[in-house]
Amino acid sequence: MNPSVDALRATFGTAIGRALESCGDTIVYVARDALLDVMAWLRDTPEQAYDYLVDVTAVEYRDRERPLEVVYGLRSLARRADLRVKVELDPQGDLTVNSVVPVWRGADWLEREAYDMFGITFQGHPDLRRILMWETYTEGFPLRKDFPLRGRFSRAEQVRQALAAHPEAHYSMEELSIAEAYEELPADMKERLRRGEHGKLPDSE
């Protein structure tokens, strides 16, 4: 087991949940609210020095009772050590977790992808939009277990919606310029951006 786990326990106490080992990798569960502190601590403490974010993703289990997990793969390049940090969320409830973009820029697109595929909201992310599916995609979040493999709509409807999408849809200059100051936006505009209302089809479900 990775010694960082004990160091984490000593520093953060109850915010650190169970830790286990699977196929030689150490996994440690962290309380949702402490995530950002834990991550910053892991990166900035010289003995830990997890300076490299390998991956951000999520796992939803087939067993509907099990929580959905957000998985962070961390690595210390100097120490050649790996640590996997997980946060548990209730798949039926509020899928919100703090964004780690302030700690690692590399999390930017990875979190956007997790948002796109699982519907997890990363609070404090500078520009949380869909990344792989298009903005007006209305069928849901594809990697959730309740999402059917072939999508929710009939093929004809999918083709119709796809063809009706504007191939040159993009953010207007104003929206692009404010993307940097996203946090200062009024709440309703944030909401509008998040829903990707721009360019929405009038008759889409």
């Binding site: 087939r62 493999l149 072939r150 009939s154 093929r155 004809a156 409807e157 083709v159 119709r160 063809l163 009706a164």
Partner: peptide
């Protein structure tokens, strides 16, 4: 495209797109 925004009638698209071969057996 016709006024539905499609090239073929919806029924035909559904028929063309039906699973066949191995993709019939996609179960989780």
């Amino acid at each position: 495209l016709d006024d539905r925004g499609l090239r073929l009638p919806p029924g035909e698209i559904d028929e063309i797109s039906e699973p066949f071969g191995n993709s019939v057996h996609q179960f989780r």
